[in-house]
Amino acid sequence: MESVLFWILSVVAVASAVLTVSRSNPLASALSLTVCLVAVAGLFATLSAHFLFIIQLLVYAGAVMVLVIYVIMLLNLKEREMKALGLSGPRVFVSSLVAVFVVALLARAQSGSGGFDPVSPVLDGSARRVAEIIFTSYVYPFEVVSILLLAAVVGVVVLGMKKF
């Protein structure tokens, strides 16, 4: 059962990721990316990372994607311009070479490492357990993130107001 769920979710994630980078209409890309993010949230759930599952759905598939789709609709690109910005042959070829190189490198590094320990289902990633770690060992990074978010909000407002 677990393994069937894993394969379904990973096929959906990879297929929608391919659609995200290959569609010429950015709105189609954004919707494919949303499907991919939901599938990754499901993969978090199969890892029993319940906190990450909820955060991924709320923050990524929810807030960030709404922002992206809002901006795409705000810009209202013309059909002709979208077509011109689609995938082009030579670029795809060169970047695929880079991709194959990275995959080969990592596969070689992985085969040399002698394998990993199996995924342990006992590790419970519930909100309570994660919060215990965040508010003890990682409390300073947590506060820094809040300052970062404040700085981002101020920066976005300034970028939105200013005439460059």
């Binding site: 890309s29 910005l85 670029r91 991709a99």
Partner: peptide, 16 residues
């Protein structure tokens, strides 16, 4: 996922 994203960054010219 990482490599597909990298191909997207390298091959696409649409900023979005």
């Amino acid at each position: 996922l990482f490599v597909i994203g990298a191909v997207g960054v390298l091959a696409r010219r649409n900023l979005l």
